[in-house]
Amino acid sequence: MTTATSQDIFSPWKQGVKDALPLFGGYIPVAISFGLISVQSGFGVLETILISLFIYAGASQFLFVAMVASGAPMSLVVIMTLLINARHIVYAPNIAPYLGKDRRWLFLMHGLTDQLFALSLARLPQIAKADRIAWYTCTAMLAWFSWVAGTAIGAIAGDEITQRWPVINDVLPFALPALFLVLVAPRCNNRLWTLTLGASAVLALSLRLVGYPNLAIPVAALSGAVVFYALQTGKARGKTV
């Protein structure tokens, strides 16, 4: 009886650890790069760690450091970084129906990064209601910790690490596209969603290739939604004709 109860208590935490593991492969090498670039741009080790601890949003952190290093006006730095992070607006409403009314969720939203949103949208519906906060807390804390720890390692010894083990930088970041693919694949169970998701992926890839990495995600996501409604409308018209 005791064992069964303990298993019930710990299973969402164990699942959280398991689900957070692929994030490590993506987060740590990128965080090491951020730590290294931040220190090279003139920020101190502690300042670099605090940026990762409090902002905790990869693309905007790189932009923040680059703009400050280039001497951009502070107001522009703030506006640009917040604009990049504006995509986060659509994340919480998507997962809100699975979260319930617990006030702790408000604090836990600090951890709602791109990757954690993708993971939560796929995983939360499969987890029992009572276990969701434990699963999310575990996954979010591990992801946050890996980002901050990676930043610290990068700021302190990033140069040496990337020179000695270049494979870390070259190979491990592949965990992120692989994870996203696994999260997208179950949705591609009909023609409408396959075409919609395929269109937004191809457009994001193309925009990134032609030099618009920050616009790639919001523009491709919005275009994907347009494709979805266009196909749906076309299908409805086809039926009426």
Partner: peptide
């Protein structure tokens, strides 16, 4: 349920992240 456009935009965001992350370093 959440508004229709939100339930569409969530998966397309993930798909866009997938596409953007495909470009190797």
């Amino acid at each position: 349920p959440p508004p229709d456009w939100l339930t569409v935009l969530g998966p397309t965001m993930i798909s866009a992240m997938f596409g953007a992350s495909l470009v190797p370093a």
